[in-house]
């Protein structure tokens, strides 16, 4: 019995909690990608770098707050700086839309033209981020590090395995849930949100109904920038901020959006968790876990790790391929143009 509890605690500590946090971060990223796809109809390759840009802006404001002695008590100062980061990222997105994408929209260019243009934007954002904050790792989490410490948990429960809950993980989940609720409320209950869905569903009919495309596009960019910044800041708080890592997140984020069904917000969230849990469960070493559950003589010698951690990108990719092969529209029937 104790063994089973130990195994469960171990599993929660190394798979469940990290998977939930990572899944929430991916889901927020995938929501941004999927919204851009639904409304503007292209895969935005600059989304990872938009995340990096928004996070950088937030970090700079955080540092400024810290230098002024402003803090958020037990919570990270970055949460206080987040709205400013979002605003800066939104301004940047709108500027890029005005400078780059609006031209191609007017010409009704092919989606792939937008994708290549987004590669150009990706270069620019990447350059700007590295120019301002440099290519190195930045840690900007402050405040209380843990909600539950492994040692305290062991002492409290008497189990040999400890359960740690870092505050950044809890913050990630709480913020992600709030954001998703707010987003769905916006999309399903407000006039503008419904107009966005209508525009995404049938552009011509939306025009006939008097929906202003310019406003829809603007609101979409603002929301995408907000989602990107929030996802980026949560990821950075949980792990650390490094421009290149954010660029690499593009792959699992796209995988999440496509697996869920691109263009479908519910799918993006489901996809985020599918990808995150696949990555974590496949790269987790089950040696200790099985050690608790199996009788002593059957305990495994090796790490019992399906794949080395370095192959986590491969996991999202394989899932992506399987979904593309067997259900190209994704789990939640997105739109396939």
């Amino acid at each position: 019995m104790v063994d089973i509890l130990n195994a469960l605690v171990l599993f929660s500590n190394f798979v469940l909690i990290p998977g939930l946090a990572y899944g929430a971060q991916l889901a927020l990223g995938a929501l941004g990608v999927t919204l851009i796809y639904a409304v503007l109809r292209f895969s935005n390759f600059a989304h990872g770098d938009l995340m990096a840009f928004g996070t950088m802006a937030t970090i700079l404001v955080t540092w400024w707050f810290q230098s002024m002695g402003i803090s958020f008590g037990v919570l990270p100062t970055a949460l206080l700086a987040l709205p400013f980061g979002i605003a800066i990222a939104a301004v940047m997105s709108l500027f890029m839309d005005r400078a780059v994408y609006s031209f191609y929209r007017k010409k009704r260019a092919a989606p792939v033209t937008f994708v290549i243009a987004s590669v150009g934007v990706m270069f620019i954002l990447n350059g700007v981020v590295r120019l301002i904050i440099g290519p190195d790792d930045q840690r900007f989490a402050d405040g209380e590090r843990f909600i539950v410490r492994a040692r305290d948990f062991e002492a409290w429960s008497g189990l040999s395995e400890g359960l740690a809950l870092r505050s950044t993980q809890a913050i990630t989940l709480v913020v992600a849930i709030l954001i998703v609720i707010a987003l769905f409320w916006f999309l399903n209950r407000t006039r503008m949100g419904k107009a966005m869905r209508a525009y995404s569903d049938n552009e011509d009919l939306a025009l006939l109904s008097g929906i202003d495309p310019a406003r829809v596009v603007m609101v979409t960019w603002i929301i995408a920038a907000a989602l990107a910044t929030i996802a980026g800041v949560l990821y950075g708080l949980d792990k650390s901020f490094k421009p290149f890592t954010y660029f690499q997140l593009l792959l699992p984020i796209f995988a999440a959006a496509i697996v869920g069904g691109i263009g479908n917000p519910v799918g993006a969230i489901a996809g985020g968790f599918v990808i995150a849990f696949s990555e974590v469960t496949v790269t987790y070493a089950y040696k200790r876990f099985l050690g608790h559950l199996l009788p002593e003589n059957l305990a495994p010698d090796g790490l019992v790790q399906l794949l080395s951690t370095d192959y986590k990108f491969a996991v999202s990719f394989v899932i992506l391929v399987v979904v593309l092969l067997f259900r190209p529209t994704g789990l939640f029937r997105g739109k396939v143009i």
């Binding site: 006039r191 419904k194 107009a195 869905r197 209508a198 569903d201 049938n202 009919l205 939306a206 109904s209 929906i211």
Partner: peptide, 13 residues
């Protein structure tokens, strides 16, 4: 019609 919107939302649009 907006196929993914409900009937009522179609009318609202």
């Amino acid at each position: 019609v907006f196929t993914s919107l409900t009937v009522q939302e179609n009318l609202e649009m």
